[in-house]
Design a protein around this nucleic acid. Structure first.
Length: 348
DNA sequence: AACTCGGGGGG
DNA sequence: CCCCCAGAGTT
């Protein structure tokens, strides 16, 4: 296949050869069956939906049967599928269709969008798969295919990126075979342009897929920014002399707690003894205090305090390290990070 | 724009 | 274990 044929042409040729055509809701579906399957498939994988779809259509074969059912009976058939608001909205919408749409599926996008549980993408799917009108959809599959094809960076849930993707999806629509085209987009995303291990060698869009040309396919779509901030770990060496002085170190001007006084820090990989040897102290005991959990705006810090009870063998400390012995009462007058200040107040 | 719903599959 | 999946509604 050459890039001289359009995106939709190539997708449709691929669909005729390799697309899925045996799913339960693809067998000459009624608008009700299209709607039901689209709702069940929201954020839910095909293999999970199939048995639920079978049971549901057997029990409620059409809009009227669903509208006449009780909420409890509908929810009972939804148990285990998750997102139960979908079932409540489905039931509510069936009754709206009876009351306001002569028991039929509405025919326009605006009417569909006004119904509970039907957003822009599901409305587009119903308009195409049930009514054979030209509308785009933008589900997880299409987002993945389009972010790769156009090498669009940024999390697709971001409004700006999503608007961009809706525009691309609209521009790529074919003039004919809209239902097959929409199904082909989802099939490509579900079976070939998968999140991991996409089969780009056999993709009908690989000739001009920007991500494929960059060798970057699996870096699209950009993952959602992690909500949990990272956790770093550190250790405080709290040298406390027999005459109750503590060894503090002024931190570098730049970075966390810049210029404030804190305890010398070592990483989990460092050897405690090798580190405190440069303080010129004789350590008589090491006491580990409970880990301190400190939260910054952009990361968490887990601090393991090690109290080194010691005698000072020389006031000469390693040069250029900004290390100073302080009486506790004097230390508390310095500029101290809050966890350092709190900790010093717990010392004798 | 960010949060919530939510069970299951896959890495 | 975390991330993601045929998203939509609420705040």
């Amino acid at each position: 296949m050459t890039s001289s044929s359009t995106f939709s042409d190539r997708l449709l040729i691929w669909f005729d050869l390799y697309g899925r055509k045996d799913l339960p809701w693809q067998q000459n579906p009624t608008p009700y069956q299209v709607w039901l399957s689209e709702i069940m498939l929201q954020q839910t994988q095909v293999s999970s939906v199939i048995p639920y779809y079978q049971r549901f259509t057997n029990t409620f074969p059409d809009i009227k049967a669903l509208a006449n059912a009780s909420m409890d009976d509908v929810l009972a058939l939804w148990t285990g599928l998750g997102y139960y608001a979908r079932a409540r909205n489905l039931h509510k919408t069936a009754r709206i269709m009876i009351a306001e749409h002569q028991g039929d599926m509405p025919l326009t996008l605006e009417q569909l969008l006004a119904l509970p549980g039907i957003g822009r993408s599901t409305a587009g799917a119903i308009m195409t798969l049930a009514h054979h009108q030209n509308f785009p959809i933008l589900d997880g599959n299409v987002k993945r295919v389009l972010t790769r094809y156009f090498a669009i960076s940024g999390w697709p849930g971001n409004k700006k990126i999503e608007d961009q993707l809706w525009l691309k999806a609209t521009q790529l629509l074919p003039k004919t075979r809209i239902a097959n085209y929409i199904q082909a987009q989802m099939d490509l995303g579900a079976t070939l342009c998968t999140r991991s291990k996409p089969d780009c060698e056999h993709c009908p869009l690989n000739i001009d897929c920007q991500a494929w040309q960059q060798g970057n396919v699996t870096s699209y779509p950009t993952p959602k920014a992690k909500k949990l901030i990272p956790t770093r770990q550190t250790n405080w060496l709290i040298a406390q002399s027999i005459d109750n002085k503590i060894l503090l170190q002024q931190r570098p001007t730049h970075g966390i707690w810049g210029g404030l006084w804190s305890f010398p820090e070592i990483s989990n990989q460092d050897n405690i003894e090798l580190c405190y040897n440069q303080f010129n102290i004789d350590v008589t005991s090491i006491i580990n205090r409970p880990v301190i959990h400190h939260v910054f705006t952009h990361f968490k810090l887990d601090i393991q305090p090690h109290i080194l009870r010691c005698t000072v063998t020389s006031n000469k400390i390693a040069e250029n390290k900004n290390l100073v012995w302080y009486k506790i009462s004097d230390a508390l007058k310095l500029g101290l990070p809050s966890p350092v200040k709190s900790f010093i107040q717990t010392l004798q």
